[in-house]
């Protein structure tokens, strides 16, 4: 299937649709640092891009590549001021994990997909905690990490509902995917 015979606008449209998942991850990173001015929110702020990573790999693994996860992770670390490279490592690991479990989760009822994500969130935040503790050379408080995992897990449906319209506007995946 080639793009011969398509107008530039059609090409742009196709390109935009293919890039939408990656762009949505960048938007989630920025939403994650919005100053909401809620007391105590900062300590438990959910890892919003992780939801996007899970959602897109589950629904359109052909549109999210490992380099994209790496770049989104770098962007997250640069913006939040966390140690550089940690989020990239976490997103790549989670991306690989979800990709390997995709067959099990695809087409399951929403609640199963959600609880799958809750487990993934626990793994991701645990990994993050472990790496940052190692980098700083001291054991970080565990409680904020637990809250972060819980809040991230709980935020899944909200983000998924926002990503759903994006998924619906997309062209269907190639048959091999």
């Amino acid at each position: 299937m080639g793009t011969i015979g398509r107008s530039p606008w059609q090409k742009l449209d196709l390109w935009a649709r293919a890039a939408a998942p990656s762009l949505s991850l960048l938007v989630l990173v920025m939403l994650g640092v919005m100053p909401l001015q809620l007391p105590g929110y900062g300590a438990v702020a959910p890892l919003l891009p992780l939801i996007g990573v899970y959602y897109w790999i589950l629904h359109r693994p052909d549109l999210i590549t490992f380099p994209v996860l790496f770049v989104v992770g770098l962007f997250q670390d640069l913006l939040t001021g966390g140690p550089l490279g940690v989020s990239g490592f976490v997103f790549l690991t989670i991306g690989w994990l979800v990709l390997s479990q995709r067959r099990v989760l695809a087409g399951m009822p929403v609640l199963v997909v959600w609880s799958g994500f809750a487990m993934i969130a626990a793994v991701a935040v645990g990994l993050e905690w472990l790496i940052i503790s190692g980098l700083y050379g001291e054991i970080l408080p565990v409680r904020p990490a637990i809250y972060r995992a819980l809040v991230t897990g709980a935020a899944y449906p909200i983000v998924a509902v926002c990503l759903h319209p994006v998924l619906r506007t997309m062209t269907p995946p190639p048959p091999s995917a």
Binding site: V33, M34, P35, L36, Q37, Y41, G42, A43, V44, A45, L47, L79, T80, G81, G82, V125, E128, W129, I132, L140, P144, A145, Y147, R148
Partner: peptide, 10 residues
């Protein structure tokens, strides 16, 4: 931007 996550406060 409020970058205060569980591991950074900035």
């Amino acid at each position: 931007a409020d970058n205060s996550g569980a591991f950074v406060r900035s």
